[in-house]
């Protein structure tokens, strides 16, 4: 397992597309890769730094990005020219960024997501298995335990935030040969518990609020990713916790610990386990497992 690098991806020519007269959508690749995502993050950071007049939203996504602007201030064609110029000046090899490593405790196979997934078996690919059993099997694992070991065995990077406020899409920081992939439900569920931890395509997510969803359900975290009243210390600056580029490391907990953390969260006193780190793509690509160990080690230290 050690020694394997992250294969670099040669990205195709980006596609610049107009979203009406007030958005530009830029597809960097049709497939997900760290190269595409880091490019999206680097370019959107440059756009932010330039502070262009008329730009109202700058949104990095998994393998694309989007800007929204006031066309009365900046013409859509001019916007595209600006973006092309910024892209030409961006090289992720020379890039590094300040980010955070965050521990996310998870009670896997918890009673709440279990009840939900059992209620929606008729919308699932494999009605006779649980989502964990199904995911383990189609990814070639002998057991749910082995699958979960892999799931928590390496951190997941937040490659996009959205759908609803605070929902992180996370891509596991391992070589492609170790990436897991699962389909979404055949028909989306009409219900998902808040704080459910799910997996779909190649992305893990944490559902901020109760609602519809189509990802395979694995567990539930006692911590929040959205706190509209900003009562928890981790939400001092924003009601949304995750930021694109954050690195999440899932930690398996038992029911007792879940309840204890949940009590602190509800009291508004829970302190998230977070450390600031500098992320250097080049070093990560060279030796991902060693690099991840260092990152996660910062939390233990």
């Amino acid at each position: 397992m050690t020694g394997e690098r992250i294969e670099r991806t040669d990205l195709p020519e980006p596609r610049y597309e107009f979203g009406g007269d007030d958005h530009v959508f830029v597809e960097l690749d049709e497939a997900m890769s760290f190269d595409a995502n880091f490019e999206a993050m680097a370019i959107t950071q440059q756009i932010r730094d330039r502070d262009l007049e008329g730009v109202t939203e700058i949104c990095p996504a998994n393998a694309s990005y989007m800007v929204r602007f006031d066309p009365d201030v900046i013409h859509p064609e001019t916007m595209v020219e600006e973006l092309k110029e910024i892209a030409a000046e961006t090289d992720i090899s020379e890039y590094s960024w300040k980010t955070r490593i965050v521990e996310v405790p998870v009670l896997f196979d918890d009673p709440w997501t279990h009840e939900t997934l059992m209620n929606f078996r008729d919308r699932h690919q494999d009605p006779d298995a649980t989502d964990l059993e199904y995911s383990a099997r189609i990814n070639g694992f002998d057991s749910v335990e082995a699958f979960l070991d892999a799931f928590v065995g390496a951190p997941h990077m937040v490659t996009m935030v959205g759908f609803v406020p605070g929902l992180p899409w996370c891509f596991q920081m391992v070589p492609k040969s170790e990436q897991m992939e699962v389909p979404k439900y055949v028909q989306p569920r009409t219900d998902t518990p808040s704080r459910a931890v799910g997996f779909g395509g190649a992305f893990s997510v944490v559902y901020p609020v109760q609602g519809a969803g189509g990802y395979q359900l694995y567990g539930r975290t006692p911590i929040e990713v959205l706190d509209v009243d900003q009562e928890l210390p981790a939400f001092e600056d924003s009601m949304v916790f995750p930021n694109p580029g954050d690195i999440l490391t899932y930690r398996r907990i038992d029911r007792e610990e879940y309840d204890a953390i949940r009590e602190e969260v509800e009291a508004g006193t829970y302190e998230y386990t977070i450390e600031d780190v500098e992320f250097t793509p080049e070093e990560f690509f060279e030796a991902p497992h060693e690099y991840n160990e260092q990152l996660v080690g910062v939390l233990a230290g």
Binding site: A31, A63, P183, K184, G201, A202
Partner: peptide, 21 residues
Amino acid sequence: QPFGAGTDPSNVVDVGYPIGS
């Protein structure tokens, strides 16, 4: 389907949605 998109032909690797899209 490209890696990460999901199996349904309507699926793409998650993108930002413009207002009005």
